[in-house]
């Protein structure tokens, strides 16, 4: 800051506080709604402060869910989401780091072609090739399975590029010293490269966990068996079902539960989160 202008500072605080309130409004409204009963919304005035039904609503959703919506208990959906998010995050990191290792530390015929194949995935988001991808997954018998939920999403050019960048900045002498020390490629990968990429992996994990948890369209398509519903995709089914009989307090409780894990990850690991966000865009 160049000069001290109390007026400007006060204005900056005002802007920020307003921003925090506007950004936080949906969360507050959802939370408040999730602590009331269905009849509280019927009175005409919308409650703005938490009611007394927090424990009741949340335990109902976690343990039993809304049976009329055809969705399983929220706890089950959260578990599915967790499994999917972990499979996607770990899978992406695993296959990306080995591909980046191959591309950076080896020279082999068709290396350029392999690189381009990976690069092209950047240009083919799932939304674009949705019907044929669904047909492939259905053909492989992967509908209603954790593999079907995660494997088609774990190819990632972004993660591969990130690791490629990390490896390229490692000094050449490190691999030379390792070779003289008698380490072959896999030993070098395990003993030197992996430990040195640890923070990059952690930062990427944060981003990919959120990415995986928040998947919507894909789980919606490949799961018809409610035992495999994920919470983000399930919430829509629930909202649809309750349209006739407004149970918004339960939908909002589910929404809060759906936000909780990824938001906790962002706030708890803010430093890694920011690092991951910035690095994946390089």
């Amino acid at each position: 800051m160049i000069e001290n202008r109390p007026g400007l500072n006060a204005m900056a605080h005002l802007v920020l506080i307003l921003g925090v309130v506007v950004v936080g409004l949906p969360l507050w409204v959802a939370f408040v709604a999730s602590t009331h009963t269905a009849t509280d919304f019927m009175s005409g005035t919308v409650p703005m402060w938490p009611g007394p039904h927090l424990v009741e609503n949340y335990s109902l959703m976690l343990e039993r869910g809304v049976s009329t919506s055809g969705t399983p208990p929220v706890a089950r959906m959260m578990l599915n989401s967790l499994i999917m998010a972990l499979l996607i995050a770990c899978g992406k990191i695993a296959i990306s780091i080995t591909s980046a290792f191959a591309i950076v530390y080896f020279r082999f015929p068709l290396r350029g072609l392999a690189f381009w194949c990976i690069f092209v995935t950047l240009m083919l988001p799932v939304e674009v090739r949705i019907v044929p991808t669904f047909q492939v997954v259905a053909g492989l018998g992967l509908l209603n399975s954790y593999a079907g939920l995660s494997v088609p999403l774990i190819a990632s050019a972004t993660a591969t590029f990130l690791f490629r960048q990390v490896f390229l900045t490692m000094p050449d002498e490190l691999v030379e010293a390792a070779r003289i020390d008698g380490a072959g490629p896999m030993k070098f990968f395990r003993d030197i490269l992996l430990p040195l990429s640890r923070t990059n992996m952690a930062a990427l994990f944060v981003i990919l966990f959120i990415y995986g948890w928040n998947q919507y369209l894909w789980p919606l398509l490949v799961t018809t068996d409610s035992q495999y519903y994920t919470i983000v995709a399930g919430i829509k089914r629930m909202a649809d079902a309750v349209d006739g009989l407004p149970q918004w307090h339960l939908v909002m409780a589910t929404a809060v539960l759906a936000m909780l894990p990824p938001v906790a990850v962002v706030i708890g690991m803010q430093r890694l989160f920011v690092k991951g966000l910035v690095e994946t865009e390089k």
Partner: peptide, 27 residues
Amino acid sequence: TIFSNQLLPWLLLAPQLAITFIFFLWP
């Protein structure tokens, strides 16, 4: 400095390339 193996890099790339081909390029 690079490693001279010819088969290993393909093994390392195999999972990524397989998924890319089956779920991206083919569709």
